[in-house]
Amino acid sequence: MEFINDVIGVITAPGWRHFVGALLCAIGGVSTVIAAAGVLRFPDFYTRLHAASVTDTLGALTLILGMAFLAPGLLIVFKLILIGLFLVLTGPTSAHAIANAAYTAGLEPIIGKIGLQKAKEEDEA
């Protein structure tokens, strides 16, 4: 029993728990910036969609996991899990809705090599 209490004490000790949580939050923040840069850089709508889905998964979920490490109580962890679950359920659904609407409306995707690979092929030709 004492051993279990020790383990629980180590897990809930604020020191390293807060550090890990803050580190995960920082990773999430940096990855959202990368994803936003991708939304600006990519050449057409469908490729931008891929960059935006980095935000929905890696960015938001790492941030929420990090905040769960920082949380002072179990109720807050429960709420964070609810938010994460909701983002995971609705993120791809709205991404699919946008993509399907664009495809149905006849927005043509760029197919084939773009940028460096295309330039390489033109050199060889």
Partner: peptide
């Protein structure tokens, strides 16, 4: 659709920002 995508993405970020 680019604009809708941007609005949706900003919304996701605001959710996370509120919690943070």
């Amino acid at each position: 659709y680019d604009r809708v995508l941007a609005v949706n993405s900003v919304g996701t970020k605001i959710v996370v920002l509120l919690a943070l």
